[in-house]
Design a protein around this nucleic acid. Sequence first.
DNA 1: TTAAGTGCAAAATCTTTGCAAATGT
DNA 2: ACATTTGCAAAGATTTTGCACTTAA
Lengths: 139, 139
Amino acid sequence: MEKQFAGLLSQHELKVTSARLLVLQIISAANSAVSQPKIETQVNGKVDRVTLYRILSAFEQKGILHKVIDLNGTANYALCSSKCTSHTHHDEHLHFNCTNCLKVYCMNDFSLPPVQLPNGFTAGSFNLSITGLCKECNG
Amino acid sequence: MEKQFAGLLSQHELKVTSARLLVLQIISAANSAVSQPKIETQVNGKVDRVTLYRILSAFEQKGILHKVIDLNGTANYALCSSKCTSHTHHDEHLHFNCTNCLKVYCMNDFSLPPVQLPNGFTAGSFNLSITGLCKECNG
DNA sequence: TTAAGTGCAAAATCTTTGCAAATGT
DNA sequence: ACATTTGCAAAGATTTTGCACTTAA
């Protein structure tokens, strides 16, 4: 399990450090995207806040993580699925924001029905955020 | 034209002040959602930065403006269409972020094809952000 | 008149930058 | 050994709060 993360890092020409492994572990352990404040809390004492900023932005640039801005403007991060190089464009993302527990779920399995844009507009990526109650909060 | 804004304010139990009218004018003059920094620039010298924060959040709460967080996490504001009271839920928003000029277009005329959620998830609002090039930047 | 709205100063956050020490290869 | 990465300090930026003054109703 940890070997995989180490491999992931070296694949992207990033050195394998404990800070980076920890961040990967935290994010991969969640079944949803994790907010930066939450990651911050979880690495508290182990990784400096500034280092976390740098790690997250490095991961995003390398295509290891997705950055999702939620409806409050807070950054959330999730592991990229399989083939997400820095040059993959024209992608779709579907996220579900639970208004109760504030989790962000990545629904990569769902694909978006086609949307027709007005003339002259060219689409790069689609990003659908759905707000509501998630499975766990819907009791 | 200005009478309409005054009416809009009193309808929502907000006092008609020059600061509020100015903000409404700026936002309604744009054909797209306006970022808070841009509004800030335009009211510079006339409305205090702090007052702007308060005006915008009051407008959002009353349902006069939509707040749209763009892909950089910056707040953008647009006038709500016709019937947007503070209690209207289950709404859809469709926004287009131009990667070149950074404008955010509200495409209220387009409606979103239905998306099926996994069991147990209940949707409140849908928010689709499309990134790409807008009509003007697509030359 | 008087409750709501505004501006200023200042606190609390959040994010970025620079540099010396530590770490991975 | 050497280039990266990290932590700390500090600068910048953004957002919030408190309070006295002003303004709309």
